[in-house]
Simulated scan of single mutants.
Amino acid sequence: MLRSKTQANINVKAETFTQKINHQLSELTMIVKCSPRPSLAMVFPNKIAAAQYTNKTLNFVAYEYLDEENKTKFMWLHKNISIDRNDEKFEIISIGLNSSLSVKNITQMDFGEYSVKVSNTIGEYIHHYMLQAEEKPDVPINLTYKSGSITKSSVTLVWTPGFDGGFPQTFILLYQYNQEEKWHSVQVQDTNEQAMDYTLTGLLSSKVYYITMFAMNKKGNSSYTQNLQITTKINVKTADSQSSDNVGIIGGSISGVAVVMIVSILLAAFFLKRRNIRSSQRESPKQGVIAGSHVSSTYTDLDASRREINNYDDFNVTYEHLNASTRAQNTYMELKNTNVPNADTSDYVNIRI
């Protein structure tokens, strides 16, 4: 098995090489040669910011590999022109697999592209840098969410930081759901990692959210990323509660309708019975109390149908024949020579003088 180093000792069992090594263990040395490449342990940004009239150093570290001693060469270039090691504007230091270039007292003419060419007996590798003035940060790259991270109240976002403009940068996350006008914001500090992530919490369940972000430093703000759209998962408890509420509302409505119907039936029966009683009373008029030939029933006790009959024509005595003094006393007097109807006919007359 090969190790991470380019030189390794390998033990092989005798059975593998029976005919060649005659059942004996042998030690093999394997030497691997390759062209230069950047060290996996280092991060080399493509953009580097610097202020005018300051110094800035560019570094490169090659991946560890085995080659002939002192065969690794470094060459630094500015705008594709080789930099003279004797130029006082620059300082180049190369030791083993490491090399650096320092740019002194930077002016506007010093900004631009720099590159380092690393070569050995196998091949070469070129790495590019962009030295530029300090400025606003670049927009963050590839804003998205981590697969499987969306819950009913949270989501984990991931993105790649852009160039910081030469200053520490902060990321501003903005989010809103589709029925809301206000944008909410969260600040996330740059950790100088190649990939950033942040878990956004406190979201509402079963909502469509729009998310965007930008970067800021002391020079200003970057532009916004494109909107990212997510939908939070439904809250199972809330859904069950809403279903129960709906069932309760339906049950309550049905119960209310039933109560109204019962009350309506009772009221209808009550009024129907009352109307029947009144109708029966009209068909059987009340009888007055008769003592001898005197009538004690009042006019109001007579049935309306009876009152409508004019019975005054049955009497022979007229109003003018009554004694004047009797009229003045406002009393009831017995009428003579008057045929009082038989009680069986239920005709009652009460005349008040």
Rank of each mutant, 00 (worst) to 15 (best):
T338S: 15
L28G: 15
L266T: 07
Q187F: 02
L131N: 01
E283T: 03
M261A: 12
S297L: 12
L174H: 05
E113H: 00
L25H: 15
N55R: 08
G148V: 03
K219A: 07
D301T: 14
S153V: 10
T144L: 02
L228H: 04
A258E: 11
T18M: 11
T54E: 07
I262F: 02
M130I: 11
P45D: 11
D138F: 11
I126Y: 04
R327W: 10
T107S: 01
H78C: 08
T72Y: 03
Q19N: 13
V263E: 02
T331P: 00
I265W: 08
N311L: 12
E135Q: 08
S280A: 06
A133W: 02
V247F: 09
L204N: 06
S244M: 11
N350C: 11
E193K: 08
N276Y: 11
G252I: 05
S100Q: 13
K286M: 13
A50P: 01
L40A: 14
S94F: 01
E88W: 08
K71Y: 05
N227H: 08
N98I: 14
S205C: 12
V155T: 10
M30W: 14
K79D: 13
D164G: 00
D87R: 04
L77K: 15
H321V: 13
T298V: 00
K33W: 06
G288Y: 01
Q281S: 13
R3E: 05
I234R: 08
S253L: 15
S279Q: 13
D240I: 14
T300M: 06
S119H: 09
S325W: 07
D164M: 00
D197P: 00
T199E: 05
I106F: 13
D303R: 02
A51S: 14
V186D: 03
W159A: 02
L228S: 05
F74G: 01
Q52L: 11
E88K: 12
E69L: 13
D110R: 02
Q169E: 07
